[in-house]
Design a protein around this nucleic acid. Sequence first.
DNA 1: TCTCCGCGATGAAACGATTCATCGCGAGAC
DNA 2: GTCTCGCGATGAATCGTTTCATCGCGGAGA
Lengths: 347, 347
Amino acid sequence: MATVKQIAEVAGVSIGTVSNVLNNLPTVRGPARQRVLDAIEELGYQPSLLGRALRKDKTNMIVMIVPDITNPFFPGAVRGAEDIAFQNGFRLVLCNSDNNIAKEATYIREMHTYRPAGLIIVPADLSKGTDEVKAYLKAGAVVVYVDRVPTKWKGDYVTSDHEKGAYAATKHLINLGHRQIATITGPLTGTSAVARLEGFQKAMQSSKLKIPKEFIQESVFNKAAGHERALTLLRLPKRPTAIFAANDLIAFGVLAAIRECGLHCPEDLSLVGFDNLDDSDATLPTLTTVDQFAYQLGAQAAQAVVDRVRGNGADTRHILLAPELRIKESTAPPPAKLNSAKPARKL
Amino acid sequence: MATVKQIAEVAGVSIGTVSNVLNNLPTVRGPARQRVLDAIEELGYQPSLLGRALRKDKTNMIVMIVPDITNPFFPGAVRGAEDIAFQNGFRLVLCNSDNNIAKEATYIREMHTYRPAGLIIVPADLSKGTDEVKAYLKAGAVVVYVDRVPTKWKGDYVTSDHEKGAYAATKHLINLGHRQIATITGPLTGTSAVARLEGFQKAMQSSKLKIPKEFIQESVFNKAAGHERALTLLRLPKRPTAIFAANDLIAFGVLAAIRECGLHCPEDLSLVGFDNLDDSDATLPTLTTVDQFAYQLGAQAAQAVVDRVRGNGADTRHILLAPELRIKESTAPPPAKLNSAKPARKL
DNA sequence: TCTCCGCGATGAAACGATTCATCGCGAGAC
DNA sequence: GTCTCGCGATGAATCGTTTCATCGCGGAGA
């Protein structure tokens, strides 16, 4: 692989001149410039990003940490970040924290020594994250939180308005005539799950609806957990006529549970999800859900990094993307006689 | 951030000694060793991976290039690769080629200057890839192809046995009594789509079944395309009683088309997919499909890189993972009177 | 003719690690 | 007492780039 030294030799100039050409410094107008360009062409030279990074104490890498790429919500965000990064000459390094704060910390600490231009974090559930992140900020790197934001964090973040989305979803159910509405939440150690629960509660409160204690089922963001909690709800003596699931994966589990109980959605029970995953169109019925624009989330985060690295956007960004309710087939007015439509089949 | 130099000062030794301690060289048994360890602890030292990489001409990064992370087949593979990489002290850099050979080439060329330990490629459809990859091999890096393999490639690869999987899927339909079986393929510029088509054809041939020309519909690997091709098939004067879709996304589109035509799966038409995406359990009916173990695909590729970097596994690996048919609800015997069950509703 | 100025080009230093030839020293052999 | 040997530790060189103080030269002004 060719180096600046070789280019300098071939072009008959000094290595400093080669570097100046590479960086488009205006000081190189002379004939030397062309000779350098020719030599670069001739040798197929590609600058070593390692050498450059060591000297400049900064790379063109943006590190993005997500809890788990196999959670279908994240690929969209990753893709958005990668697109914007690539377009601006940055590269995205992806890390899975496995929703494990120790692994997250390891990644943050170790990746720091690669001197990335920026760090985009979707924090693990219990992550405070502020300790390791301080070192980045001190070193002049950019840190942007996405989706979930540690309560103490004062820097840049991009997240959708979980509370607003949950509020809209719940209001939709109320407007259809539902009164007995339950929710299956995400882990309440995470800020996004908490905000969605609050949106649900506020909507209920605004319509003076009571929420029985057992109508709030804390869970985690996957299908199996949603399935299990749904069975609990459906077997209640007085079961809900609608369920707000804190994300689509949970909702998929609920759909399965509804079928198992011999019930039908939306005739017997309405269901709303959150995320608008691609697959929410593949289910039967298709799932009414809240679109939170995963791609945009990632893209805006990457854009924040890019702008900040370029020196623009000195003011911290607190971006709150407005989610949108997507009404599909899984919601309908409640059955005429509450709870009498059909008893839940015992399993 | 502390450096070897500072550690050396604090511990009262030379920088060479510090390096020797860091690398666990046996030559540092003396009291100096402990003083160095203390200093490292005290200053919270973390070695600069940039400095190390520049000197050793190799990093702990494994670059993985996939066509598009939002295709739900890939996150599993990425996750598998990341897990194995992390466990062995390597880090995964993810790149989306966007199924674009130019972008793929850019990534390959530029990432080379970061001196990654290895390169894992799921090539874009038209990728030959051999040109840029040569530079890696010359530099002693490891290259592993995954899922699809360029025809000329002689090095390591990990892929599932697409042909075998397609054969099993088709045989399953034949065994159920189907005779008029169509397939919707992926883009036949990619090796995986070709192999699946061949498996389909061989199964048909082995049962002496003819395949009308219009029963082979070339498509691309997404839902919209599958939907469109399925409509074409369903509107044929003599429509198939079963469809083998070259992947689950296509199958999802087929399911939608079946519903639109007022038909039912599996009563009127059986359907088999390929990939066993999580979502293939969320559809109604659940989708009979071929599991190709995406996680294992990625994990084995990363393992191949790790082993080769460590100097083990000198022989090239050609790993062919056996896929498994997952029989679910979307397949059943054909309707009693062929094609007479119900006419496809005109749209 | 001399001085000064500014444009282009120069090349040594620096970034943070690893490597390797070398050195000092104490012990053992004669 | 001298020589040799080997163990531990040393520190200069190196990787590929950028940066910046400096230099040479030619033209303009006095």
